[in-house]
């Protein structure tokens, strides 16, 4: 009798486990489907190439992201012009206002605004995006000096790989 109730408790436990894991699997699948379906609206910004391939309505506010094209920055008081590039396509951006401290040529940037009639982009907000690389100024200096990293470029992808140690 005792053995029987023990094994039925075990069976119930197994049933509960199967139920919990099954429900979790179904929920995970449903979430994956929803996220895939909403893929487009989940991105924070579009690249210049995506914008060129699928231009939004002229008055719709969108965000574009990419690198500030080296040599394209012109400042005239608060009026700023620069180009955002994804190294395939680039787009001219005009903006009036303060730029974040990390804004510089060759760095990642996200601009929010609308497409202007002339194919340029009129931004009303510019945010700096920084990458996942962290290093002391001396290391950055050394990398640039050794020619492994050129001014205005994104930092080398594997700056701390063993073979690159100074």
């Amino acid at each position: 009798m005792a053995a029987k109730s023990l094994s039925s408790a075990k069976a119930r436990r197994r049933k509960r486990l199967a139920l919990a894991l099954g429900a979790l699997l179904a929920l995970g699948g449903a979430t994956a489907l929803v996220l895939t379906a909403f893929q487009e609206s989940l991105v924070f910004f579009y690249s210049p190439s995506e914008l060129a391939a699928k231009p939004p309505a002229p008055d719709r506010r969108v965000r574009i992201g990419g690198l500030v094209e080296p040599g394209s920055l012109e400042k005239n008081g608060q009026d700023v012009r620069f180009r955002i590039t994804d190294l395939t396509q680039s787009i001219a951006v005009t903006y009036r206002g303060l730029l974040p401290d990390l804004f510089r040529e060759g760095q990642g940037v996200v601009a929010q605004g609308t497409l202007a009639g002339d194919g340029g982009f009129r931004a009303n907000e510019v945010l700096a995006k920084h990458d996942e690389t962290y290093m002391p100024p001396e290391v950055a200096e050394a990398l640039k000096k050794s020619g492994r990293w050129k001014e205005g470029e994104a930092p080398p992808t594997h700056p701390f790989a063993p073979e690159s140690a100074p």
Binding site: L42, F44, L99, D101, L102, V126, L127, A128, K129
Partner: peptide, 12 residues
Amino acid sequence: PTWGTWWAWGDA
């Protein structure tokens, strides 16, 4: 100080 904003709605 880095991005230029406290919060960004729409960032996943």
